[in-house]
Structure formats: structure tokens, C-alpha cells
Amino acid sequence: MEDARLVQDFIGGNHQAFNKLVNNWQTRIHHFAYRYFANDDDAAEITQKTFIKAYQKIGSLDDASKFGSWLYRIANNLCLDELKRAGRKKSTSLEALKSAPKSDLAPDADQKVIRNEAMVLLHRALLQLPTEQRIVVIMKEYEGLTFREIAEILDESENTIKSRLYYGLRGLKNTFDSWNINKETFSYD
């Protein structure tokens, strides 16, 4: 409801309302893009482009209460465009192999190395999924969206979304099995 009110305020000419929308949503959009590309710079760029596009096109938003879904759709389209434009799949997986996200949770160097390697493999496994399965896995597992919301964002049926999620999870499991990774790998948490 707050988003809807902010959207109405912004359309009414209050620019500060858009700043609040950015503040409310930029972390979620950034996380979404980060899990998409496994790269902070790409995630920041996609986040900025998403809000710029939202600013330009907000007049076309029919239902202000669906601002979140609409924003995810913009972000997803930008991610797909970026994939098509730069052929990111290979480069990001190589990049992810070189540098894992930093974490201060590991108590000592050995565990930190193991953890970083496991993170790299998690990223790599996600990047190996077909794009349409990866989007659904990210939206469901990390963004916590409902099947209806995902279906609306991707303009597909709920059954299609569930099917993609099923095959996505099964694909990930097969990848982890082939790399001898299981949940005990992360048991140090």
C-alpha cells in the first residue's frame, strides 16, 4: 500500500516519493541482478537502469499496487537484454570462479577458503542453468515471490513457472551431485 501511495505521489509531482521508492526497492533489485550475474558492477548498473526506466515509464503503470512486480519485470528484461548484448554467460561464470563474494563469517582462513570455493560453485551452478529456469529459481528462492507474482512478471502461466522451478532445482541437484557438493559442505555455518 505504501508503494502505491508513493507511486501516486510521484505521478502527482512529488519527486521525493520516487526517492523513497528507490530506497525501498533498490536492495531487492540489486540482489536480484547480483544473483543473475554474480557481479557487483553489473548488479549496480542493472539496478540504476531499472529505476531510470521506471522513472521514464511510470505513467504506463496501470495499477500502482503492482509496482513491485512491474519493477521486477523491468529488471528482468534489462538482465535479459544484457545477456543478449554481451553474451555474459561465459564471462560471468569465469569471473565468478576467480572471485567469490566476500564474507566475514568464516572464523579462520581454511574455512574461509572452503566457504569461498563453495560460494563460487553455487554461483557457477546457478549460471549454468538455462536462463528461464534461473530467473524462476532466483525469484522464488531468493526474492520470495509467489507463483502468481512470478507468472505475472514473466507473463507465463503458474504451471509453467512451477515446471521451470522443478526442472531448475533438479538441474541444480544434478550439478551439485556431479561436483560432490552436498549440504554438509556448508555445515560450518
Binding site: H30, Q48, I52, P101, K102, L126
Partner: peptide, 14 residues
């Protein structure tokens, strides 16, 4: 267990 990085500042300011 997949960690993620958050933006350190607001990326778009009106």
C-alpha cells in the same frame, strides 16, 4: 547459503 552484496549507497537520487 549463497551470499549477496548490497549496494552501499542509494544508486539513483532524484
Amino acid at each position: 547459503h549463497l551470499p549477496v552484496e548490497s549496494p552501499k549507497e542509494q544508486l539513483v537520487i532524484m
